[in-house]
């Protein structure tokens, strides 16, 4: 029957065009470049302004860049992940996206790959900029090697997974401001509150739980504990999966 022949064949074979479309969309809105530029500017400012702690024995370049990621860059690139989907809800162009690619899962996978890949690249570049500038400033350039490159990659990976978390939150909440508020609360307040409660009530497991929230896990990852990438993957992947589920059960 002709009906059968128009049915969708292999799933994997057709995610490619959706990825290309998402990549094109990401590259053709100014906000992408503003966020990336803002992240670079924040990193550069910290790398230029951070002060020497007075001990000539400690290397400063990587810790300074890590600080900049934790204090500024993570919010900016996390917001990039959010806006990648909330911008479509705000303009209603999400209806065009689904008219083009009716499978909600396929759209979500394409967006996650594109946001993850782009933010990894941007995060890696921004981190490398910070480490490089700080290394020159503190006369550490000679000491930059594979270990520092791995640290920079860890920063890129953390930021990429965080952007995926932002994407998932943005899909669930559909509003930029709401998703951003949740992300900030999750990154800043939740670990603080858990730690506070842990000390107040003497519950060590709350302290452990705090370590598994995104920001502390990211700190661990950027300190060379790569197993924390799995924790962040669970956050990012879980949020994206929840977003895909919400798209499936909700009207657009």
């Amino acid at each position: 029957m002709s009906a059968a022949s128009t049915r969708r064949p292999l799933r994997g074979a057709t995610t490619g065009p959706a990825v290309l479309a998402e990549l094109h969309k990401l590259a053709t809105v100014r906000s992408t470049w503003w966020f990336t530029g803002g992240a670079a500017a924040a990193m550069l400012a910290i790398a230029l302004l951070a002060s020497d702690d007075g001990d000539p024995a400690t290397a400063l370049a990587v810790p300074i860049a890590t600080q900049a990621v934790s204090n500024f860059v993570q919010f900016i690139l996390g917001a990039l992940g959010i806006v990648g989907v909330t911008g479509e809800f705000a303009s209603r162009s999400i209806t065009v996206t689904f008219a083009c690619t009716p499978s909600r899962t396929r759209v979500m996978v394409a967006k996650a790959l594109v946001v993850g890949g782009a933010v990894f690249a941007a995060g890696f570049a921004v981190a490398a900029l910070g480490v490089g500038v700080a290394a020159v400033r503190f006369d550490e350039a000679a000491g930059i090697g594979a270990a520092e490159a791995a640290d920079v990659a860890a920063m890129g990976l953390y930021l990429a997974l965080l952007a995926m978390l932002g994407l998932g939150l943005g899909t669930l909440v559909r509003r930029t401001a709401g998703a951003l508020a949740i992300l900030v609360v999750l990154l800043v307040m939740v670990p603080e509150l858990l730690g506070f409660a842990a000390r107040k009530f003497g519950l060590a497991w709350l302290e452990t739980a705090a370590d598994y929230t995104p920001a502390p896990a990211g700190w661990q990852l950027m300190s060379g504990r790569w197993e924390y990438a799995l924790v962040l993957l669970a956050w990012g992947g879980g949020a994206v999966a929840a977003g895909a589920w919400a798209l499936k059960v909700r009207d657009v």
Binding site: A18, L20, A21, H24, K25, S91, S93
Partner: peptide
């Protein structure tokens, strides 16, 4: 009006075509 206001008309159509 369901078009991202920051994207050009051509880029809007190109994304659709790519998909």
């Amino acid at each position: 009006k369901a078009v991202h206001p920051g994207r050009s008309g051509r880029d809007h159509l190109r994304a659709m075509a790519l998909s």
